[in-house]
Amino acid sequence: MAFIVNDVDISAAEPKELLFDKHVEYIANHGNDQNDFEYCMTEFLRMSGIYWGVTALDLMQQLEKLDRKSIVEFIKKCQCPTSGGVAACEGHDPHMLYTLSAVQILCIYDCLDQIDVAGVARYVASLQQPDGSFFGDKWGEVDTRFSFCAVAILTLINKLDVINVPKAVEFVMSCCNADGGFGSKPNAESHAGLIYCCVGFLSITNQLHRLDCEKLAWWLCERQLPSGGLNGRPEKLPDVCYSWWVLASLTIMGRLHWISSDKLKVFILSCQDTDTGGFSDRTGNLPDIFHTLFGLGALSLLGHDKLLKVNPTFCMPQYVLDKLKINTQIISV
């Protein structure tokens, strides 16, 4: 009996080359129409939106297309003077997710000194819990994403010593499932995005030896569908952002070659919008800035010659981390 899978068909008419200039244009113009409903609806994640755009353009060596000065000013306004955390946008509450995005942008612009770095460290430390986990903000949601954010932020600002790292590792490892994957909390279903967070976390904290790489890589490889695209969990449709989460995890684990790069490349390229530029989640859908970064990031991991090398742990250009003298652990097989 045939194997039934949820997947997409890629028609011959879909793009096969990287539409470089279109993407530059798409990102540079993103948000120019501030009356756009979509723009207003996504204000709550603006800081991450800027990080996605800045990183994507930097990978394409087109960073000058964005106005550095206004972005840095924006970030300064978003830092909360009391807690030290950074909000997605002025008027919103600070959160771990947007604090990481802000720090990543400032590292790319090489101007961390523009914000209160000690405040950032204080904020992150204040969110660690006795079991080693992290809240996303003061209201108490726990998630392995926030563990990743915490150590990524503190490593970028060179203040990892303000938290209890062994406890943090213990919590992340308690979220490891029998299938080798990780979920958002202990016993939660394995999920490629959260696996990326946990693998990235272990790479930053130099604890990759704690992974059961054979099992985890098995699970990650099963994400590849006949179309070449990767999904994030069993039976889900392929999605460009999982090209990043899965591929980056496999890269950190030294097992990128376990999936078919050629087929994945075909899938990612088919998600480009030929009219507007940008990548969508899957073939035929509308593009957005989030999938645009992760499409480009995945192509960079696959060695695309028009893109700068990306660091699989931080999802930032490798040269930025080199400049900061940050080494992330990678398993070599």
């Binding site: 979509e38 991450s48 995005g193 999605d239 859908n285």
Partner: peptide
Amino acid sequence: KKTNSCCSFS
């Protein structure tokens, strides 16, 4: 007909 992706990291 206007399918927009709804997935985001947050």
